[in-house]
Amino acid sequence: MTTTISLATRTSAPTLKRSPSPWMRIALRTLRNIPALIGFLLIVAFFFTALFANFLAPYSYDKQDLDNIEKPPSAQHWLGTDSLGRDMLSRLIYGARSSAFVVLLVTVVNLALGIPLGAAAGYFGGWLENLIMRTTEILFAFPGLLFTFLIAATIRPAVLDWARSNGFADLARSGYLDYAVVIIALGFVGWAGLARFVRGQVLTVKEREYVIGARSIGVPTWRVIGRHILPNALAPIIVALSMGMGFIALSEGYLSYLGIGLQPPNPSWGNIAAENFGRYWRTFPQFLWLVFIPGLILTLIVLAFAFFGDALNEALDPELVD
């Protein structure tokens, strides 16, 4: 973007002010909304914690301190320890890493499937559009999270079997394949919504003069889509992604809570809550924080993505100019 300096209207300005780029303006308008700002900070903190979990966590997520089993918060263990003597704070911090990993990879899967398929459907139309759109309609008929549950539960043994018989026994034991299972299960249905959305965006942009102009001077199709159509449909896609990320984090929590997502000892907020709820609900109110802190964090992350997405959506609305 070129900067525009209008001297005529800014006679009183002591210095020449650069007017911010459109993206900057949208960012500023979004973050002026207090809940969105808090949400944004939470999202940043979430990814920061996930990225630097090994530096931030005082202990490893599976290190047992056998002298301190089932201890309330202390200077040594800020959030206490669970029944195996594992540091709760460390488990929660590594839980952020698990959650962020799933959120990012499922988003990548959704993007990799949803954007090309949606753009192709919208741009080319015809039988291709029919095929892609009918496929998304079929995926929409599946009972959401329940079907994710079915996929995760059935492909998990298959994936583990495959890994064991192909010389990846260590990998199968490490639990990292559980991440793959969750990501496949959530990615399988997740892209359909994005593909429909991208198609709609492409359809609205497709008939604009600049696209017709680009086509008329012989710009190749892929370039028209990549350089002219998608960038102009980008902003609403980002909104959809932000809203989707909260949903992915929530779904991962549900799957792990039900025991078919990430498996202990790998930490996930869902399985931490489930593990400790099963063990401590009788001893109420002792050790309750082991159940509610992961639940509370998950709630906050879901809300953070929702608020940020909402505010971004409002900021992108051209009717509300500041």
Binding site: L250, G253, Y257, W281, G295, V302, L303
Partner: peptide, 15 residues
Amino acid sequence: GYGIPSFVMGILLII
């Protein structure tokens, strides 16, 4: 109501 996962809400009410 929108943000709280239902398993957390369920745990809360059960407790």
